Computed example of a mutant assay.
Amino acid sequence: MTQALARLPGLGPRSARRAVLHLIKKRETALVPLVAALQAVERNLVTCAVCGNVDTRDPCGVCTDPRRDTASLCVVEEVADLWALDRARLFAGRYHVLGGRLSALDGVRPEDLAVDALVARIAEGGFAEVVLAMNATLEGQTTMHYVAERLAGSGVRVMQLAQGLPVGGELDYLDEGTLALALRARRLVE
């Protein structure tokens, strides 16, 4: 069990050992409910055929929510990105999960991502704006440019997230790339 937990992100061998010892010590209050929850997830979890989110139903709760703006679509790399954006409650539209990012080093090609499904979804109509919410990494930016090229001529406005200084960030601790983006995106003080 320790080896299985140690393979999870954020848990090394020592953290996994501590977790296992805690689960053994608290078998009835921690281990049994955890096992039951994991079995329920394994039985009920599905990938949404529309957007690529994971949920207990298909289409997912995000796709079936009638309060969402059906004219805006946010494209993300992974489900975790969708969850982070949705948790912030700053985007009220629909989502599309690509399932990764282009990476020559990792062997991830365009056909390995859900880009064709995105293009088909846009071609069905109804969307006025697509927000490309890719990570500010080389692979994320490469993916963003590839998706933008694929959507060119589709009639939708293709946007990207703003980049630059983080709130609370100090200039002395920022890398040159972040500073360069912040300078290029400078605006008038209001």
Rank of each mutant, 00 (worst) to 15 (best):
151 L>E: 01
135 N>H: 13
160 Q>G: 08
141 Q>E: 15
136 A>I: 02
131 V>D: 07
145 H>P: 00
152 A>K: 15
139 E>T: 06
142 T>S: 14
134 M>S: 14
162 A>S: 13
132 L>K: 04
127 F>R: 02
142 T>F: 06
151 L>M: 04
148 A>W: 15
161 L>V: 15
138 L>K: 11
159 M>R: 15
160 Q>M: 12
136 A>Q: 04
153 G>I: 14
135 N>M: 04
127 F>L: 01
132 L>S: 04
140 G>Q: 10
138 L>Y: 09
147 V>P: 06
127 F>A: 00
162 A>L: 12
154 S>M: 05
146 Y>L: 06
146 Y>E: 12
142 T>W: 04
160 Q>C: 05
146 Y>S: 03
132 L>Y: 14
131 V>N: 07
133 A>G: 11
137 T>C: 05
146 Y>R: 08
132 L>G: 13
130 V>R: 00
128 A>Y: 01
139 E>N: 10
134 M>V: 04
130 V>T: 02
159 M>V: 08
129 E>D: 11
137 T>Q: 10
154 S>K: 06
157 R>S: 09
133 A>P: 07
136 A>M: 08
137 T>M: 08
153 G>H: 13
148 A>H: 10
157 R>Q: 13
128 A>W: 00
147 V>T: 14
147 V>I: 14
129 E>I: 04
133 A>W: 11
150 R>I: 03
137 T>I: 04
146 Y>H: 15
127 F>Q: 07
152 A>G: 06
146 Y>T: 10
136 A>D: 01
127 F>H: 03
158 V>H: 04
142 T>E: 05
161 L>G: 11
161 L>D: 04
136 A>P: 07
150 R>F: 04
137 T>D: 02
156 V>D: 03
157 R>E: 07
128 A>G: 10
159 M>Q: 08
152 A>V: 03
161 L>Y: 09
137 T>L: 07
135 N>V: 04
158 V>E: 06
135 N>T: 06
146 Y>G: 02
158 V>T: 01
160 Q>T: 13
142 T>R: 09
139 E>R: 01
131 V>S: 00
130 V>K: 01
144 M>F: 12
161 L>H: 12
142 T>Y: 10
149 E>R: 07
133 A>L: 14
128 A>N: 11
136 A>W: 03
144 M>D: 10
155 G>F: 04
152 A>L: 07
149 E>H: 05
153 G>P: 13
127 F>M: 01
149 E>W: 01
149 E>Q: 12
153 G>C: 12
131 V>Q: 08
161 L>A: 14
133 A>Q: 12
151 L>G: 07
141 Q>R: 11
156 V>L: 02
127 F>I: 02
149 E>K: 07
127 F>S: 00
136 A>Y: 05
155 G>R: 09
156 V>S: 03
147 V>F: 12
162 A>G: 14
150 R>V: 05
